[in-house]
Design a protein around this nucleic acid. Structure first.
Lengths: 335, 335
DNA sequence: CTGTTAGCGCTTTCAA
DNA sequence: TTGAAAGCGCTAACAG
């Protein structure tokens, strides 16, 4: 089924069919009705390759970084649903945690000539030279692009600093004074850096000490790495009563490892997560964590991109989406 | 930059350029070197829209049945990654657990004219009349298409019967005689049916009784449904000491609920899972479960489809991928 | 071995 | 309001 077939079947010419399909003006109601009926009857769907070959620029590329990241998966679903309701088409590219998203994006940019690019997780800015060659609007979701010079780049994320500060406040207000942190590489991950800054804000505010070398353990975002990190952390630093982790999965891994070492959570050590995965409310103990709003991140992110595409030379936007503090059972009150 | 530009710049014609780019024979080494050099110098990248417009029928549709199914998600990722390395493109259609996959597939078949269709979960054979209209190779992944007449249809799955039997044997050999089952609808899900048959094999082999109405609880594949199912199960049937669940997520939901009711796993009730999600080895207690090989399922499934696409009139294949029995801590030895 | 050329299915002028 | 026709960039068949 091509528009040629529809044209033949409906008695109109391909031009008219195309106009109807694209909701263009100057088509009679008769033609519109007839053509739409024929198209529907024959399950006609446009060949997007041909369409995009012709009108380059109604296509959005989505890059997802982080295999099997539950949070991103669920945001992705929402985004795709919304894109379906616009004039744009999209496709998804999955990247490994160690792939270079800027390089991949650049390749896609050349090959597909998208109107815009959505980055789910990851931060292409780290590879500036590649990234700056991309001349279409981009949006970072769950990540932030704060003091960025690149005017193509918007971002929609959670206020990591505030959230981290709040959850740390909670730990301290429950009587914990010697805290450990399991987090990302603060020199290479801006999310980790921000969460750490929030943590530090709280620590300082309460007049506590924090020795980075002793009390911080750098790790990747996985169950396994959370587990090994907590082992290293408690072996190098005595007397920690609570651990702030930068992701639910690390928290779960850490709890598992502590259990295996005969250390109970939260009786002996308290732990907090970050992200608010559904799962965290089914494990034992229920995790105290920060829930990021998947639907809001998705909706606002896409909206920002479409805005940027339609209005060229616009200032890029940087939004923070409200989060939710979830009080679980993984923190013990010790005062 | 188009191949036309490259042709002009290199002094050859577009045909030759195309041949070089596609590694076709009948090109002189001189031409190849020259053209490649020019292409590289100008950062030329093929326009995939044009390429695929030309090469129709290089599209694979993937139908995923069961929203937010972690196992399928993870298989999906692997498949997409592999497809990216082939000449094919793909897109994904997500179906609800109760949608009719044959109907959807047929619609996609008409609309998109894919070269092949992958079914992740679900079984379109149940709707034969619709499914038989599909005239391109299909492959079922995680499911089986045993005595099937349809020669388009291959399958790559786990030996559910044997796996279920083995894990049930384990329960019984640990002294459990009154077993509960939390599983899918055995009248509508062949996977559930097979797992139940494996379970029954073991039960009969050991001379135990099983009252379906009392001891079986039908449920969907989610944390939440696992939680509510276990509640119903233990309220309608006294004295169950072990529960065979047909999915890890139900098992996790069930454990959570039992905990909330003051029932400890495995001290009071033992539980087994099915699927072998990574997660199951990080929760408390570690789940005793069956690990399906995601990567093997993905790789073999895609390979089977591509094979079937390239060689028409080939006999379809039906593979069983080895599984692994994982002994966790969720089963108590009571004899 | 290389060049020429006919489309792939679609959008979008330009005429009618 | 509609039809005819010119490509978008590429591949592959055909002719040389």
């Amino acid at each position: 089924m091509t528009i040629k077939d529809i044209a033949r079947l409906s008695g109109y010419a391909v031009g008219t069919v195309s106009r109807v399909l694209n909701d263009h003006p100057n088509v009679s109601e008769t033609a519109r009705t007839k053509i739409l009926a024929v198209a529907k009857e024959h399950h006609f769907v446009r060949n997007t390759n041909a369409q995009q070959l012709k009108q380059q620029g109604r296509y959005i590329a989505i890059l997802v970084k982080g295999v099997s990241n539950i949070l991103l998966n669920s945001i992705l679903e929402i985004i795709q649903k919304h894109i379906g309701e616009t004039i744009y088409t999209s496709s998804v590219f999955v990247l490994d945690e160690y792939d270079n998203e800027a390089k991949t994006a650049l390749k896609i940019y050349y090959e597909k000539r998208p109107a815009g690019i959505i980055f789910l997780g990851g931060n292409p800015q780290r590879y500036e030279s590649d990234f700056n060659k991309i001349k279409v609007p981009c949006v970072l979701i769950t990540n932030q692009a704060p003091n960025v010079s690149n005017n193509n780049l918007s971002s929609v994320g959670t206020d990591d600093v505030k959230a981290a500060e709040q959850i740390t406040d909670y730990l301290i207000e429950n009587g914990h004074t010697k805290l450990g942190v399991i987090g990302g590489d603060i020199n290479n991950s801006e999310i980790s850096e921000r969460r750490f800054n929030g943590f530090l804000n709280s620590v300082k505010k309460h007049g506590l000490e924090f020795d980075f070398d002793m009390q911080y353990q750098t790790t990747k975002y996985s169950f396994e790495d959370g587990a090994s990190a907590v082992k290293q952390l408690i072996s190098k630093c005595d007397g920690i009563t609570a651990i702030f982790t930068m992701g639910d999965v690390q928290a779960i891994g850490a709890i598992r490892m502590l259990n295996d070492m005969g250390i109970s959570v939260p009786k002996d050590i308290s732990i907090t997560g970050f992200d608010g995965l559904l799962l965290t409310q089914y494990i034992y103990p229920r995790l105290t964590t920060i829930r990021q709003s998947e639907s809001q991140l998705a909706k606002c992110g896409l909206a920002a991109l479409l805005e940027a595409i339609s209005k060229e030379d616009e200032e890029s936007v940087h939004l923070l989406i409200p989060y939710e503090f979830i009080e679980g059972e993984s923190v013990l009150k010790i005062n």
